[in-house]
Design a binder for these strands. Structure first.
Lengths: 192, 192
DNA sequence: ATATGAATGCACATAGATGTGCAGTGAAAA
DNA sequence: TTTTCACTGCACATCTATGTGCATTCATAT
């Protein structure tokens, strides 16, 4: 009676189902944001029974975690490590900011939804802290180590998604214009 | 049979009930934001039957409208009119920005909730457009008329709630520090 | 004294989401 | 060939919010 049974081909199709679920969830996160995304919606969009969803992801957090994992693998935040080699901090900023603003532009919808929902949903906030926190801290570290306190505050502002959105989407600056504006702003920031 | 009946004292108590409802709604908007605020919650907090609520406000929009009306009467955005008399635009900015940032500080919770919800709820967005739009436009007008395009973009950024929040709550600048930083940023902004 | 109507208290039907139960189905593993 | 199990399809109970119905209460207007 007790017979061994190890998944081989079936493991693949199982992984495929799991991937379809995660993809569907990511699409919904882009469309309406994680907070508005229900298990029912994900199941329907993935073409899967709700049962199947619960089987793969016992709770929302595990699904969120896997979505954010796949997404940051596919569309990673710019790596600040190579910027360390740049001597002049202005030059460093003129390299780093366009990279970050480019990411914001490519991922504007998702970023807006996720940051919005993080404000009231602890689960989403946890994901943001986990996935974006360290990289953002690294940006501040690499780009701000020679700066004064006032300049660091301005750098923090320059790195914010909302700043990019305000300058580019609302004021209509080109990405390069936004970068140059914020480099100047950091440069000009003096002691209070 | 057909007898006239005009409300006198009863009109007052009716207005009082209506006011209690609006106050309850405003409290909830501060606590969790308009999007999360349900009619059921408002009725419970106001100590009123849901029926009564529907009697006063047939739909969410009418309640939102009255809440925002009362609130902006009680805690109005700073009036930009007197700033027009100030010759030097730097001086003007050093007068206007602290006033706006003070308002942001006093109303941080509500502003955060409302701006967040406006991003996905058209009803809330409409209220924001109605109540804040004109005043924000006036700010840009009064404070930005002598500025270059790049400087106007930086001014727009300076006027944003998110900018205040980033500089003061996240970077820990004092309000005056945030003002000075953004005045300098506008001052330094050059042509792109 | 009597009629009015703002507000109550309880009820109902609807709708969407949730979590779980259970008997299939069918392809893959033994 | 037979067993295993991922997934299906339908079901159920629960919960919360919504919008509405209706009889009742009671201070107020007539």
């Amino acid at each position: 009676m007790a017979r061994t049974y190890t998944l081989k081909k079936r493991a693949e199709s199982q992984a495929e189902t799991r991937r379809r679920i995660v993809e569907a969830a990511i699409e919904l996160h882009c469309a309406v944001g994680p907070a508005q995304t229900t298990f029912s919606m994900v199941a329907e969009r993935a073409g899967v029974q709700r049962h199947t969803l619960y089987a793969h992801f016992p709770d929302e957090q595990s699904l969120l975690l896997e979505c954010s994992g796949l997404y940051s693998e596919r569309e990673p935040l710019p790596d600040p490590a190579p910027w360390r080699g740049i001597e002049d901090w202005r030059e460093r900023l003129r390299t780093g900011l366009p990279a970050l603003y480019g990411w914001y532009e490519r991922n504007a919808r998702l970023a807006a939804n996720v940051l919005r929902d993080a404000e009231q949903d602890p689960q989403v906030r946890e994901i943001v802290t986990l996935r974006w926190g360290p990289t953002m801290a690294a940006y501040r570290d690499v780009l701000g180590d020679e700066l004064s306190t006032a300049q660091r505050a301005m750098l923090h502002l320059a790195l914010s998604f909302f700043t990019w959105r305000t300058l580019v989407l609302e004021s209509g600056l080109k990405p390069e214009g936004a970068v140059e504006a914020m480099v100047q702003a950091v440069d000009c920031a003096r002691k209070t």
